[in-house]
Design a protein around this nucleic acid. Structure first.
Lengths: 201, 201
DNA sequence: AGTTAAAGCAACTATTTGTTGCATTAGTGG
DNA sequence: CCACTAATGCAACAAATAGTTGCTTTAACT
């Protein structure tokens, strides 16, 4: 009560363990289910809360905006689904990565993935788009590192450019053209990328 | 009043002229503005109505679902922006088309375009995705027709596949990787496509 | 074991959604 | 120009959702 500690606000220590982690898990699970069932429109705080068995106020207190919440769930999913590949060749790694991507996009959550990613560019959630993309590229680091170490790629290649050329047609075919993405399509893309960027050997 | 015409409901004749057309124009304009300013979340019937100076009930009566309404505005925009190109070569036409696409995507409405297109695949608006895509491909018909007629492409090429390979990286780079799409990027894509699909000459 | 984040609970207001009956305007065909 | 009526305007609804808040309970950390 003394006036000496009026200004003291000892920065509340976080408690991310146990219950909190479980609540987070349930929230993410609920969001993914809702995205599959009803798309973005279904992802209201109300729906998320009741589906996850969590209080609505908890969601608002964690983050008053629903977009960062949704992004968290998506990134969480993407990181769980994105297994690292090390086949020994860039071609093999890229093929595995794109097959993995195609599998995710072909699945029920595919459309929601790009809907969210695209929505991030509309200004609804400043900074979240970069967060998502950075998370994606970080997972691809080892693939490029290995290829460069083996001399398959020049060490100054534009990694984002290469991945954009590779993943672009995969995304597009599934989500704009609404066509299935099969192994043949993946192989076509891989051939183009390797033919253009891989050093001769 | 006779019972002879009880079943007669002479399918009310439409009146698409004058006022109705003007209202449609204002609605589309309002939607595009809202998409630019606040993304999908801003496109509520309430916002659209007040922005367009139209009664909310009119929107509900025209279509109780907001997605077809939004798609209409997007398609309308896309068709207005998509000028036909006839440069005399497939490479020229494709370059012009992709530059056009890049320009649209680089603009303020770019992110909204793909957000909507992607949202269509989530089941929020059955059939609307196909409608959008069909509208897009239809505009590209002359380009392929001309190229085939000139012998630059085989007459059995998969037009959708080619356009997916071309437009995919454009979309991706702008809207997932959030990088600008410059002429250099367009040229890179064009080189790949032409190198792979154009017949030698 | 004590401290205190963090979640639960409950009540509340404001906003948005979706609907409907009636009045008014104006496109269309004669 | 007139009559008909589709389409919009207007206004008043109920229902759902969005946010917010004070208090209680649980359980993560030291």
């Amino acid at each position: 009560m003394s006036d000496t500690d009026v200004m003291e606000r000892p920065t509340p220590q976080k408690r991310p363990g146990g219950r909190t982690a479980e609540v987070t898990r349930r929230i993410h699970e609920a969001i993914l289910e809702l995205l599959v069932e009803g798309g973005i429109d279904a992802c209201t705080f109300q729906n998320i809360a009741s589906r996850a068995g969590v209080e609505r106020s908890t969601l608002y207190r964690r983050n008053p905006d629903r977009w960062p919440t949704i992004i968290d769930a998506i990134i969480d999913f993407a990181e769980r689904e994105t297994a690292p590949h090390d086949t020994g060749t860039f071609r093999g790694d890229l093929t595995a990565t794109l097959r993995n991507l195609a599998r995710a996009l072909n699945g029920p959550l595919g459309p929601a993935l790009i809907t969210v990613a695209a929505a991030l560019q509309t200004g609804v959630a400043p900074g979240q788009g970069e967060r998502f993309w950075a998370s994606r590229m970080e997972r691809l680091g080892p693939m490029f590192d290995g290829a460069i170490a083996r001399g398959e790629l020049r060490d100054n290649v534009d990694r984002e450019a290469i991945f954009s050329m590779a993943a672009g047609p995969i995304y597009f075919r599934r989500l704009i053209a609404a066509k299935p993405v099969g192994d043949d399509w993946v192989r076509l893309v891989v051939d183009e990328i390797c033919g253009r960027y891989c050093l001769e050997n």
